[in-house]
Design a protein around this nucleic acid. Structure first.
Lengths: 230, 230, 230, 230
DNA sequence: AATGAATGAGCCTTCATTCAT
DNA sequence: GATGAATGAAGGCTCATTCAT
């Protein structure tokens, strides 16, 4: 009858965060399939039915996790880039730095987002790819500026992407640009995984490595025409 | 008396190949965890016990698949490269072309080898990574040639601040080169996945895209200093 | 609204008892290996997962059964003996009577405890033997009392040739006493099985038979009226 | 075409012995249920179908093993007793000695015969019990001599069992005698197991221990020095 | 006389999910 | 708002047993 002795009735939002935090940890630890709802509920400190009540099925839970973490990652990158009118290389550098920094600071989130936690055929593969595509699209924008600029003679390389950018998607240059962007994203993922496993790496170094690779190009490493961080 | 209608009692080697083919297909379709031995056996046209008798457990079966497919892929790339005394860019180009060609021709094999079929923590992750590392090592060799051979002393692949050289790990160039190689491999994987999903791409185009990206460098796309296939 | 028609949602302890009862029955009926978890669950009136949730694996379940039944049997015997300061023959008689009574009343329990339900090499063999040893130790204590207390020094329980005393193991009397105790326990088991299969036997009669066999024999060991091999 | 290079076609009897030897070993090692036909066939050096061809099912194979080994054991005991007209105690001693000797020399056979290799409910339980009963009947014969003798006053204790022995089975004394015989057999089994597990025991010592236990007891039944329940 | 090839059937175990309170 | 109790469904693995040669 005495109430208030043990207040366990937390507001829904708090509980949901607890659960998703637990879920991210578990999914990162075991992967989607091997993570069990039991463990997630236990780690969150609640009973299993509550998880189902709030977050739906395991699949929905995972999708929610991906959405939350992808949003945070994208926000971090966007915040890092800051100003979309700066020169493309500065934007790229800022984006890479923000990316590797975020990933280093949130390893579980990155595991869940990267392909280490799930496999093809799982229904949220699309959900997860969406983030990838968003990032790729952003990168494609940058590259498109550069690349498109090159197409016409005399065009300023560093022309900011102020105006509309009609040629990024679709045929023509677009497809090539998309492919390049994907290559860059793939390289970034690969390096992020490597950095996560390799002790003693800093986000700045990793970002610089990729920036070098991407910007200067392997062929030019030969000529010491390296890009260097500002 | 009618012969050839339905062949039963095949020799062990043949059955084993059938089973592994079926396994590769299933693993590619659903991923390791979700693929069921029942489905594999059915697809192979045999009963489940036979699969266990010949190939052992599910894990052993998957490992065997990875080994077989990794061997085939590596062999294809090695055959493409042909002559390790040619100029590095030719070698790289040949390797990329062979890689994307093989991957385009054997999409299931590629899914099984790439991270789309399994997740971190699964016991064969090591087995599967071995191939990745072998390819990366090969690429690192090329890059190292370029770097060490052409650029002369004093050139550094990895970026970093202006301050004291943080490259305290590994043997001088090593780590930076490894990271670059991994970046390249990651880009290749990413493009391979993209090519697999995108109709109308040829292996040659994809390879050229990556070669451009990797060799010329994004920065130089600006100056139209693009590498072009021989 | 109708209550008592069919009781669902029982508290855990009740369900656990139901399951273990069912398990004892099944194990007694078919032996450990041949008993199936399906049958146990069905007999207990629950689904299989619940059995696993509450009692763990088949092996753990069996171990739990053995422990429970062994505890009950030992408790029954101990309660029968009552007073460990009474004369040894009274103690033995009381123990035998309690044993055969309990065994007659709980035939399934006895099957599970005796070697009829499991075979050598099964992991709980040790668990099950422990009870046997406890009983044997108790009996050995009685015999030891008789022997040490009444017979005085120089009397030996174990036979043997006329030559040098081969009793080099154990602490003097120990081994011979242990062997005798085991013989007695073996005889008791054998009679218990026989009584279980033979209708019309009472626990009192069976106990008396064994007591006659054992005591008249043991009693005379005291007087050195030993039979000696020719 | 060349024949005779490798003669593997052994006569049926030889093959059968090989198989049964292997079977006894396997059954002793793992118990009936856990022993696999694969292992038996392999140990026998033949293919599985041959085992089925010669010995029938696993159950028949085990039954055959039991029959063979039981026959050998009984023959050994019978041979040890030699002369059924000797005094009962000599017969019993000779039988026990032969029993423990045989068991010590053929541990696998004993495991298969004793309850360590199979469990109740298995169809050959009866088959295996038959040997037990045969031995028990033999023992009962001896005891019956002694016991029956005591009933009438002045009867010679060691009266040989030459004449017909009508009162061993059935009501009256019979049942008690059977029970005593079973107790003795149970004690013998128990000691045999103990001896098998305990290094440094000789068959003679073990037999003497039991003989002491049994005879000093039985011997006193003669003098009506029976212990009686309060 | 002997075997390589093959399978039907079953068992232990797990897990996402829901019901009733 | 929160949970203890309970399960349907499926998956990995094994084994005795047989067919065709």
């Amino acid at each position: 009858m005495a109430d208030g002795v043990k207040v366990r009735r937390l507001p829904r939002v708090v509980r949901e965060r607890q659960m998703m935090d637990a879920a991210v940890t578990c999914f990162a630890r075991h992967g989607y399939q091997s993570a069990s709802m039991d463990e997630i509920a236990e780690l969150a400190g609640v009973s299993k039915p509550l998880v189902y009540l709030y977050l739906g099925s395991k699949e929905e839970l995972f999708t929610a996790c991906i959405r939350r973490e992808a949003g945070a990652l994208l926000a971090a990158v966007a915040a890092g880039v800051e100003d979309r009118s700066r020169p493309a290389d500065e934007q790229l550098w800022a984006g890479l730095l923000a990316f590797f920094t975020y990933v280093a600071d949130h390893p579980d989130a990155w595991v869940v987002l990267s392909r280490r936690a799930w496999t093809q055929g799982e229904p949220f593969a699309g959900e997860a790819s969406r983030m990838r595509e968003e990032i790729a699209a952003f990168v494609a924008g940058l590259i498109g500026d550069v690349h498109g600029g090159v197409a016409g003679p005399g065009v300023e390389v560093r022309g900011g992407g102020a105006g509309p950018d009609p040629d990024v998607h679709g045929g023509g240059v677009g497809r090539g640009v998309d492919a390049l962007a994907l290559a860059l994203v793939g390289a970034a993922e690969s390096l992020a995984d490597w950095a996560a496993e390799t002790p003693g790496t800093t986000a700045r170094d990793t970002a610089a490595t990729l920036m070098n690779f991407a910007w200067a190009g392997l062929g030019n490493l030969v000529k010491s025409e390296r890009w260097s961080p500002p």
